[in-house]
């Protein structure tokens, strides 16, 4: 459980959300399922929110995937997008966007890892520890996409 990291793989997946808030736990659930189903050489991190110091974490990887629940009703239930550094600072110092984190990574550490964000549609955000049935369906679709298309792509890189 303590796992103070001394070595890293080149690829990082960050699950963002809160499993105590219904479908907000989709990002964490995604990681849990991937870990359970596959043995791939990837580092995983769980975050309630992205914070400024995550720019240092991200700087140590070649590729990063941010996985988060989305309020939007996305086509297929999920959406994968390339993520680029952008300085759009959010008011709270305790919740940053993946784009701002990448921006800080570039400014502070001089590196620009390849990054994607995977949004998965959620519907219920109240205090509960399970995700809703339609959100689970979206999660399954996202996992299927990840395993059938995303992993083969990064394996070729």
């Amino acid at each position: 459980m303590k796992e103070l990291k001394t070595e890293t793989y080149p690829f990082l997946i960050i699950g963002i959300g809160n499993t105590g808030r219904g479908d907000d736990g989709l990002g964490w659930q995604f990681i849990s399922w991937i870990k359970k189903l596959f043995e791939i050489q990837v580092d995983y991190e769980y975050r309630y929110q992205l914070q400024i110091e995550d720019s240092e974490l991200v700087s140590r990887y070649n590729q990063v995937l941010f996985v988060d629940a989305s309020h939007s009703d996305l086509k297929n239930g999920y959406e994968l997008k390339q993520c680029n550094p952008v300085n759009h600072y959010f008011f709270s110092s305790h919740a940053q966007s993946p784009e701002t984190i990448l921006y800080l990574t570039e400014c502070l550490y001089g590196v620009k890892p390849k990054a994607f964000s995977l949004a998965i549609s959620g519907y219920c955000w109240e205090l509960k520890t399970i995700i809703s049935t339609p959100a689970k369906k979206n999660l399954d679709a996202a996992i299927q996409y990840f395993t059938e298309e995303y992993i083969p792509k990064i394996s070729r890189q």
């Binding site: 400024i52 300085n87 600072y89 110092s93 701002t100 921006y103 800080l104 400014c107 502070l108």
Partner: peptide
């Protein structure tokens, strides 16, 4: 007035 500006100007 935010940490991003601090990062840019005071690395």
């Amino acid at each position: 007035r935010n940490i991003v500006a601090v990062a840019i100007e005071n690395r």
